[in-house]
Design a protein around this nucleic acid. Structure first.
Lengths: 196, 196
DNA sequence: TTAAATATGAGACCGAGTTTCAGCAAGGTG
DNA sequence: CACCTTGCTGAAACTCGGTCTCATATTTAA
């Protein structure tokens, strides 16, 4: 399977979007999410309100649009796990690529997760995105197990629980200011599910 | 421990609130949540917009304020479970009182869960409420197990996973138009967690 | 060069939610 | 009975996020 072909147009769009996201994030972090209006961000980025809202469907997405790619990758990673592996191990291992981001850039990710944690609107939106990942992950689990369509409750429940482990581990890591080991926290969370 | 003393004032307030909720629900169900404005509901209930928004902090809460009581009761029920019981059984059993509502009034609960399922804003708000229940349930589990403060990840993870079971089972039951057995679905969901 | 597609900006518009203020009914006190 | 306090209500102004429309570039393709 080939990577998606991206014209110069698309690349330019992505660059602008990244720029806007960074401007927005800096403002939010400095002055607080609720204190900064969409107008403020647009003005700071030298762009109109309309344009800003065309790049991000909502104010929250200026912070959380990174998660969209993560969700897609996550389903891929899960499908790439060896066939014999049990659900919990497969789910846990498919999270590894996310942990890399946190390991490579702790200060950046910490700033972001802190902002999310402090802002109810962002917390809620993150949960929505996570819950949007559930069907894809559940389908991946069902396919791996050769389950009939439509899949029963079990894979959905496991996907949901695993995603909870991820968010809860990240939240705890954030609360510790990054001093705890995120991978260990995630293992601990999964253990709470698999140990009797 | 005695029940809370409620003056006539409080009772009147509760009655008005219930009346408003019903008017709102009927309108939402008939015309769709997004098509009905807060003004519409207020007018239909013969009350001002201000008053409506004083009773319910938000439009969503006109539908979902019932969950607030459920959350409080849930923590109580969990604390009332026998000491020796394992976490999963205690969590599962503490959900029983919720299932009673569904058994007693299937058509009403079906209409409500359908509305919630069809409306992204309501789905999101329900998730927020559920996630707000997690700390209370986790604390109850930690207290039962005699865990030190602050509780580790495990009880939080288990509370979250159990609540996912509840929502997923209810959603599946709703999708089946109430034809499946909700208690069996909930058992099935929990089994996906406890079975290896 | 021309024509079609695409990105931007501007402004009107809608609806949720907050805040302020004024009126009003109920209940207690002298 | 008159008085005053307390709390509920309605009206209106305001902020802000999000949608929609239209006009105007700017680019790409033919």
């Amino acid at each position: 399977m080939m990577g998606t072909v991206r014209g110069t147009r698309e690349i330019a769009r992505a660059a602008v979007k990244a720029e806007l996201a960074e401007v927005a994030f800096d403002l939010f972090r400095r002055n607080g999410y609720d204190q900064v209006t969409v107008n403020d961000v647009a003005a700071a980025a030298g762009v109109s309100r309309s344009t800003f809202l065309r790049y991000f469907g909502s104010k929250e997405d200026a912070v959380l649009s990174v998660l969209d790619a993560q969700g897609r990758q996550l389903a891929e990673k899960l499908r790439a796990r060896p066939a014999g592996e049990d659900d919990w191990t497969a789910l846990r291992r498919s999270f590894d690529f996310i942990l890399e981001d946190y390991r490579e850039n702790p200060s950046g990710t910490l700033a972001l997760t802190r902002l999310v944690q402090q802002t109810p609107a962002l917390r809620a939106r993150r949960m929505e995105k996570h819950s949007g990942w559930r069907p894809g992950l559940a389908q991946a689990l069902a396919d791996r197990a050769g389950l009939p369509d439509p899949p029963p409750l079990a894979p959905l429940v496991r996907a949901a629980a695993a995603l909870d482990c991820l968010s809860l581990a990240i939240d705890r890591w954030t609360s510790s200011d990054g001093s705890l080991d995120l991978a260990a926290l995630l293992d601990e969370a999964f253990a709470a599910l698999t140990d009797r």
